[in-house]
Each structure stands twice: as structure tokens, then as C-alpha cells.
Design a protein around this nucleic acid. Structure first.
Lengths: 193, 193
DNA sequence: TCGATATATTACCGATCGGTATGATATCTG
DNA sequence: CAGATATCATACCGATCGGTAATATATCGA
């Protein structure tokens, strides 16, 4: 009951995500947010808590909407095909024209003032979670015999995540999609070697 | 003539560099800077211009002091040995304990508000300059016959710079040196393949 | 010793930061 | 209709932002 909300929570959240993605947590002000979301400050605080909670919700939305290629790639039965999809999906997502370039898990708070250390820690945890998921998938492939027994799964994982991270930053700095696709192909060719 | 300066410009600049490196351009406030540099605002402005010019000077110092491994690596006569040194030098520098982790050319302003777009463009230009230097070195090696004629020099360059960038971000997020050394070794093994 | 010059110190500027108190307004239940 | 309730809009909060005006102080050349 009470007066009904006059905006779509999901539309507003999408607008906030777009800003955080492009300008980072600290590079996005509340005035930027309320303008883009089309709501006032009190509405923002009543609905989303505060700036940090809004970021967390935007991050959750990002993971579900734009990082699903990661889950799909890890579900691929063939490990080689899976890592190929991981790398090319990364390039495709992070160089798409209809949203900001790069990855929110990098752009959000690579560095920050002490005020934003909580947001940074959140991002760090999500990065580690994704890394663990990839590590588990590679380890599984090793158990299944898709990779040689002497293959260093941890090193393969770090290599993959490091290349993906590099791709996201290059994309954020404006590198062309075709160039990054070539990087993805090269990495896909040698990640387990 | 006039009253002599009571602080060492170079020491103060080193302190500013440390802050920009760790917290980025926008994550570092003037109060942070004056405290760490041990000088007052008017002294900072009289000596360094303003915050943006101070960053530019800090960036120059960074390139000369901490990115010299790049110049050295490109001067290596053997291209394979050169790229190995590039990648391992990158890891060693960006995971050293006596200064912030990661690379100023990434941490400085990966994303930012519109106010800092000038700083971001500066960083972007320096990144492109370094990339061109690497590209020229690889192209030269191709001309010299150290690389096969059908080798895609542009793709090799992008791969190397992307891995280096990924390493810097992983380092900034706290990844262990040994893990990144393994990444560097793997990349050094396959960059031209 | 006396300007001239350059730095140091203090105190301040308007603008913006993230966040909120207040009260009007619209929908619910009864 | 009359509360109860939740969202709306306006106006405001103290703190901090990058940057500066005003002035005291220390060194120079003459």
C-alpha cells in the first residue's frame, strides 16, 4: 500500500549500472546517478539504500546480465572449446557498442580513495570467485583426461584470467574489437601449453 | 634569487607519484598530496602548476624511473629474449614491495569523471606510444629474419601489451608474484606462435 | 642597508560531495 | 469518507573538493 512508485526499479538500476561501468564507483556522483536514473535523491536512498548498496545491486545485475557468457563457457563439455568461448565471449561483451567498454569488475574500482575500500573489496571477492570457477573447470578437465596429468591447472587459470583482464582494460582504453579477437585466438591456442 | 625553497622537489614529486600510483588521479585529493609531500597548497601550486600538471610530472618520473625495463628490453638484440625480459620485467616491477602494485598507466585513470578526461587522454597517448615502440621492435625483428615472414606483427604486439596490461591489473588486485611469473613465462613461450 | 624577488603561511573561496529532514501527494484499507 | 502508509519533491546539512588572495619571511644583488 501507500503511494505507488512512479519509476521502474530495473530501468533505474540499468541506468546506474551504465554509469558505474563507464566512470567507476568514485567517478560517478549522486547527481550523475539521479539525473541518469530520472529519480530524486530521496527516491534513490529509499529504494537502493545508499551509493555503495546501489553499486552492489548494479554489480549483481552486471554479473547476471553481461557475464553469463562465463557460466555458459564453463558449462561447455569440451575444455578447449570452453576456453575459446570464454576468451571470445569476453572480447565480444567488452567491445559491444550498446554499453560501456571494458568490465565492471575492473572499471568499478581498480584503485580508489580509502572511502571506497568496501566497494573495492567486493569487486576483489567477485574476481576471486570467478577465478575459482575457472580453476575448478580446468581441474575437472584434467581429471577427465582432457588435459595431460602434468598440466599446471593453476598456471593455466591465471593465464586465462590475466588475458581476460588485459582484454577488458584494452577495450576500456578504446582498442578495436578485431585486434582483441586476435589476442583471444592466440591465447586460446596456447593457454594449456 | 628570492627566498630559497625549503623542500626537495624530487622528493615531493616521488611522494605524489606514490599516491597517484596507489589511488589513481581522482582517488588522490590535494589534502592527501600536501600531507604526503610535506608542503602546503600554495607551495604545490607554485612549484607544480596544478593537480593535473603534477600528475603529468609524476607520470614522466614514473616512465623514467620504473618503466626503463621496457626500453632495456626493446634494446635486446634477440627478439625472443627481448620479449621475455619485457614480460618478466613487467611482473617484477609491478609486484615489487617498495612501491604500489600495478602500473600507473593503468591505475592512473582507467575510468574517471568528465573532469579528469584530460589526464585520461594523456595516459592513453603514453600507452599508445609504448605500444608503437613494441610494434616497431617486432617489425624490425621480422625484417631481420628473426621472425617468419608470415608472422602477424600487429597481432603479436597486441598480445604482448594485453598480457602486460592484464598482469598489471592482477598485481593491483593483489595477485602473488609467483603466479604472475608463470603467466609471463607462458606468454613468452607462445607470443609469436 | 635597502629594495627586489621568490617562497612560506594562514585563511579563505565557490562548487560539489554523499546524505537527509520536512512536508506534500497518492494509493491502500476500513 | 478517514486514517495509515509509502513515495514524491524541495530544500537543506556538514564535509570535502580543487584552487587562491593576502601577507609574512628569507635570500639575493646593489
Amino acid at each position: 500500500m501507500g503511494r505507488p512508485r512512479e519509476f521502474e526499479v530495473d530501468v533505474a538500476l540499468a541506468a546506474a549500472l551504465e554509469l558505474f561501468w563507464r566512470h567507476g564507483f568514485e567517478g560517478t556522483s549522486l547527481s550523475d546517478l539521479t539525473r541518469a536514473m530520472g529519480i530524486t535523491r530521496p527516491s534513490l536512498y529509499a529504494t537502493f539504500g545508499n551509493k555503495e548498496e546501489l553499486f552492489r545491486k548494479a554489480l549483481d545485475r552486471y554479473l547476471g546480465t553481461f557475464l553469463c557468457f562465463l557460466v555458459d563457457a564453463l558449462a561447455e563439455p569440451d575444455i578447449q572449446r570452453g576456453m575459446e568461448r570464454l576468451l571470445t565471449g569476453c572480447v565480444d561483451t567488452q567491445t559491444a557498442a550498446d554499453h560501456p567498454p571494458g568490465c565492471l569488475m575492473t572499471n568499478g574500482a581498480l584503485v580508489c580513495s580509502d572511502d571506497a575500500s568496501g566497494v573495492r573489496r567486493q569487486i576483489q571477492e567477485h574476481r576471486q570467485e570467478k577465478e575459482r570457477a575457472i580453476a575448478a573447470r580446468i581441474e575437472q578437465a584434467k581429471q577427465e583426461g582432457q588435459l595431460p596429468p602434468d598440466c599446471d591447472a593453476a598456471a593455466c587459470t591465471t593465464f586465462i584470467t590475466t588475458v581476460m583482464t588485459g582484454i577488458s582494460v584494452q577495450a576500456a582504453f578504446g582498442m578495436k574489437r578485431e585486434a582483441l579477437q586476435a589476442v583471444a585466438r592466440k591465447a586460446a591456442r596456447c593457454w594449456s601449453a
